[in-house]
Nucleic acid binder design. Structure first.
Lengths: 200, 200
DNA sequence: CGTCTAATTAGATACCCATCGAATGAGGTT
DNA sequence: AACCTCATTCGATGGGTATCTAATTAGACG
C-alpha cells in the first residue's frame, strides 16, 4: 500500500545513509572509477563495493559503462538534483504521512478498548483516547432524534456498566446536549476538531 | 578525522532513512502533534516515538514546545531546505570522498605486498596493483641518474628474487627507459596518470 | 502531599543489512 | 582450449539500531 513516490524517497535516503555509499558517491563524483579501484579506495572488498554500486545504480544515482571486463562507474548528477528538489518542499514532507491518518489512529484506539462483542472494556484514562471512544459511542445514537435519560442508559449499558460517567462525558465533550431530562446529539462539526487542535 | 560537515550530512541521511521517522516528519509538517498522538498515528509505542523525536530534534529537524506535561513537536522547515541545498551540488558530493584518496589506496596496496623488512612478498597479478608496487619501487632509484643493468639488479634483488620481470615491467609501464644496456627513470608525469585515467 | 497523565530513560530483544570468503560468470589473451 | 583478470552472486556472520516493556521523571490538580 505504499505510494511509489514515498518508498522511492525512502530508498534514496537509505541509500545515502551509509558512510561507505556516501564515500563511493563522492569518488565517482570526481571521475569514473572501476570496482577494484573503489574497493581499494574505501578499504572494502570488491563484493561489498559491487553490492553498494548495484544499489546506487538501481536508484539511478550512478551510471555504469563496461570496457572489456572492467566496469566504470560514474555519478549521475541529475538524479541527485532531482532528489534535492523533492526534499525541498514542505508539502512533499507532509505527504509522507499520508499512510497514517486520524482514521487509523481512532481505529487503533477502538481496537484496544472495544471487545469483539462490542462491549467497552474500560473507559480510557487519557483524554484523547477517551474522546475517540466517546466519538464512536455517540455515533450509535441517531442524529436529530431526542432521547430520554432512560433510553440513553439502556443503550450505554449494552457497552459498559458505568452509563452515568459516559452520559456525563458526552455532555463534557459537547457531543450531546441535555435539557429537562432530554438528550440529543450535537453536530459533529462542533467536536471533531477536538482531536486535531492541540490547544483547544 | 571526520570533517564535521560530512558526518553531519551522514547523520541527516540516517535520520531520514527510516520509515517511522519519515512518517513522523510528515505528520509534524502538517501541524503540531504530541508524542501520544504521533505514537497512535504511526502505530508505535510512545517510548519509540520519543526516541525518534529526540534524534530529529538534536539534528534541528523538528522543534519542541511544552504545554503542561504535553510536548508538542513541529517541523523546522529551514533545516530541511538547508539540507537539500547541500545535497544539490556535485562539488559537495565529491567532497564526501576526501577521506579516501589515491595515496590511501596505494598505501593499502603496499601494506599488502611489502613485508616489514621492505621485501616484496609477491608481484601483484592485477595490473593496477602491480602499477602501485612498481611506482613505489621505481622511486627508490634516483631521478636523472643512469644505472647499468647490474646496478638495477642489485637494488631489485634486495626486494624480490625476480629482478628480470621487475626490470621488464619498468619499461613496460614507461617508468624507466633503456638504451644500450643503460637504464634511467622517466619523469613521473609520464606515468602517474596511469592510475587515474580509466581508458588510457 | 498523594494521585493522575504525559514523556523520557534504561535495559533487553530482535531484526535488518553491511561485510566477508567462496563460488560463479563474463571477457580477453595467448 | 587453458588461463587470467575483473566483476557479480551466494550464503553466512556480526554489528547497529528500532522497538518493546518496565521504571523513572516532570507537571498539574485536588
Amino acid at each position: 500500500m505504499d505510494t511509489p513516490a514515498q518508498s522511492k524517497l525512502l530508498q534514496f535516503f537509505k541509500a545515502l545513509a551509509h558512510e561507505s555509499r556516501l564515500k563511493l558517491l563522492g569518488l565517482v563524483a570526481q571521475r569514473e572509477h572501476s570496482v577494484q579501484e573503489l574497493a581499494a579506495l574505501v578499504g572494502l572488498k570488491e563484493p561489498t563495493v559491487s553490492h553498494h554500486l548495484t544499489m546506487l545504480k538501481k536508484l539511478g544515482l550512478v551510471s555504469q559503462r563496461q570496457d572489456a571486463n572492467t566496469h566504470w562507474y560514474a555519478l549521475e548528477p541529475e538524479a541527485i538534483a532531482n532528489l534535492a528538489k523533492q526534499v525541498l518542499s514542505r508539502e512533499q514532507i507532509a505527504g509522507l504521512a499520508s499512510e497514517a491518518d486520524p482514521a487509523d489512529w481512532q481505529a487503533k484506539v477502538l481496537e484496544t478498548f472495544i471487545a469483539a462483542d462490542g462491549a467497552l472494556k474500560s473507559i480510557p484514562a487519557s483524554r484523547k483516547k477517551r474522546w475517540a471512544v466517546l466519538a464512536w459511542l455517540v455515533r450509535q445514537f441517531e442524529d436529530g432524534r431526542r432521547y430520554t435519560e432512560a433510553e440513553i442508559n439502556t443503550r450505554l449499558l449494552e457497552r459498559h456498566w458505568d452509563s452515568a460517567t459516559l452520559r456525563r462525558e458526552f455532555i463534557g465533550y459537547k457531543m450531546m446536549a441535555r435539557e429537562a431530562g432530554v438528550y440529543w446529539r450535537l453536530p459533529e462539526a462542533d467536536w471533531v476538531s477536538e482531536a486535531a487542535t492541540p490547544a483547544g
